[in-house]
């Protein structure tokens, strides 16, 4: 895309993009921290991560403020307008992912106090997939890459499948021994949070497709 005649507008668009990328990087980092704190039973890291989404929240407000300012002052049209309005939407998804990282860290704090129920194998795998989806969705968004965004929508199923698998496995633990219930439920919550992260990634991917093609692919099955 060529430059604007009015250069200040380009600078603001870049600032908006950079803020979103920074936010996404922080969310990824917090998710990694939360999962690592659980898997490595690092209580110090877990506790630190429960209070770590303040900078993400601040970035959310900065993105909102900049986007509203640009709509008011620059009268964006076409792709610029789609970029700014979709930025306003995906910033909410990113902020939620930050909250979910905190939720996972809170679960980790509780789980780490008890004896480990089982070796964590599928959970880190699921976390890796969910994080990759989030990363790819964001990349697709900032680069206007509709193909990559479409692949995110397809790969969400993998995360859903892993969730079902983890859920079933933990139910067998609970049926065999009711003393595992607290820990098993804690782990199910972690898996559910990761599944939600992947859902937010698909929301972002849908916005990326709208940005690139001007086509709304949300809720296609309902219309």
């Amino acid at each position: 895309m060529s430059d604007h005649i009015f250069k200040q507008f380009d600078k603001e668009l870049k600032a908006l993009k950079d803020k979103l990328l920074l936010m996404a990087a922080k969310v990824e980092e917090r998710l990694s921290d939360a999962i690592r704190a659980l898997v490595q039973r690092d209580q110090e890291l877990a506790k630190r991560t429960t209070e770590s989404d303040r900078d993400i929240n601040r970035l959310e407000m900065e993105v909102d403020e900049l986007a509203v300012k640009m709509i008011a002052l620059r009268q964006p049209a076409a792709r610029d307008l789609r970029f700014i309005t979709t930025a306003l939407k995906i910033v909410t998804d990113l902020e939620r992912c930050g909250d979910l990282a905190v939720n996972i860290a809170e679960r980790a704090v509780a789980l780490n106090e008890d004896e480990q129920l089982k070796p964590y194998i599928d959970l880190p795998k699921m976390a890796g997939e969910a994080q990759q989806l989030l990363k790819d969705a964001l990349d697709a968004f900032v680069n206007g890459d509709a193909d990559k965004a479409t692949s995110v929508l397809e790969r969400d199923q993998m995360v859903d499948d892993l969730f079902v698998q983890i859920f079933r496995e933990l139910i067998t633990y609970m049926m065999q021994d009711p003393r595992t219930i607290t820990r098993a439920i804690g782990l199910i919550f972690v898996a559910k949070h990761l599944e939600r992260v992947a859902d937010h990634a698909t929301n972002i991917a849908e916005q990326a497709i709208f940005l690139a093609k001007g086509k709304d692919v949300r809720h296609v099955h309902t219309t």
Binding site: S2, D3, I5, A77, A78
Partner: peptide, 19 residues
């Protein structure tokens, strides 16, 4: 036209990139 133009030339003009 102002949200989803199909022609690149339209896009460039209405978003201030023409010239």
């Amino acid at each position: 036209i102002f949200t989803r133009p199909t022609e690149k030339k339209t896009e460039d003009y209405i978003s201030g990139r023409y010239g």
